[in-house]
Simulated assay, not measured.
Amino acid sequence: MEEHAKQPRHDGPDRTLEALGLAEAPRERPLSYPGAWPQMSGLLDGDRLLPLIRLVHEDRTPVLAVGSNACPGQLRHKMAQFGITSPVPMVKARVTGIDVGVSAHVSRLGYVSASPFDAPGVVRELFVIWLDAEQLAVVDASEGVPLPHGNFARAWLPAPEVRIELENGEPLPGAYVYVNRHGVLHNGSPAPRTHPGQRALLTELLVTLPRLRKLFGTTPAEFCARARADRRLCERGTRLFAEEQLATASGLERYVRAQQPGSPGTPANGK
């Protein structure tokens, strides 16, 4: 039986994304990236986030969200492109062994996205989204997985190398995650840097990289506007990160395996 069919009625508190402050999609407002995350686990059902009955969904694929895939507004936007209305369970998790870095590419959506990197001993609160086959194909396409030169590859992170505990303490045997094929950024040290949020990140990059300012302007808002308007400009920005020797390996490349996901098509405004 479908998860949404099991949900009780919720005629009390307003569970709409708008009321919960979770409706905004970074695809529409890039400076909001990675978007608002829920405070607790829930079932994304259309424009509502409902309480979950269970945390593990054996008939679905667990995907660890480190960026905007943990934003209900962003997920809803991705699914709406293909008319998909089936619900998505979003489960809060305590993850040990990775941290959230900065993708070494400029997205056509107007931001510099998050990407995981290997970080033994580091503990982060993230979300596991449980996707059915159709939903997984959409998210894969949005990350460029099916494309030979797409920005992300989907990789399985096995326990115990990466430990994922759901909010009830139950461990998972592993989960998929999207690893950036360009690597991640560092800020002068050998180790990857963490993602501070879009406005802070772009402000810092524009201050320290004159060539980036020449391409994308002097303010975060100007950067986003130019990036959204020009695919080739985004490709030049991605090359600039490599030429400035700011890109480094995430340490998760060893987990990347050849994927053959189904895909309803690659969105025109995908990452």
Rank of each mutant, 00 (worst) to 15 (best):
M1I: 13
E3Y: 03
K6H: 01
H10R: 15
P13A: 15
R15W: 11
R15Q: 05
T16D: 08
L22D: 05
L22N: 06
P26Q: 09
E28G: 06
A36L: 07
Q39E: 12
M40E: 13
L43V: 03
G46S: 09
D47Q: 15
D47P: 00
L55F: 03
E58A: 08
L64P: 02
A65M: 09
V66N: 13
S68K: 03
N69K: 13
P72S: 09
Q74G: 01
L75N: 03
R76S: 12
A80G: 12
G83S: 14
G83T: 12
T85S: 07
P89A: 03
V91L: 00
K92R: 00
V100Q: 10
R108M: 11
G110M: 08
S115T: 14
S115Q: 14
D118Q: 15
E125W: 12
F127C: 01
F127W: 00
A133N: 01
Q135N: 01
V139Q: 06
D140A: 07
P146Q: 06
P146R: 04
P148C: 13
P148T: 13
H149T: 13
H149D: 14
N151C: 06
F152E: 07
A155E: 05
R163A: 13
P171W: 11
L172Y: 02
P173T: 03
A175H: 01
Y178D: 02
V179M: 09
N180V: 04
R181Q: 12
H182E: 12
L185H: 02
L185K: 02
N187W: 11
G188P: 01
P192F: 15
R193G: 04
R193H: 01
Q198V: 09
T203F: 07
E204D: 06
L205T: 05
L205V: 06
L206S: 10
V207R: 15
K214L: 11
K214T: 11
F216W: 10
E222G: 06
R228M: 05
C234D: 06
C234E: 03
E235V: 10
T238S: 15
T238A: 12
R239K: 15
F241T: 05
A247K: 03
A247V: 09
S250E: 12
L252V: 14
V256N: 08
G262D: 10
P264M: 14
T266H: 11
G270A: 15
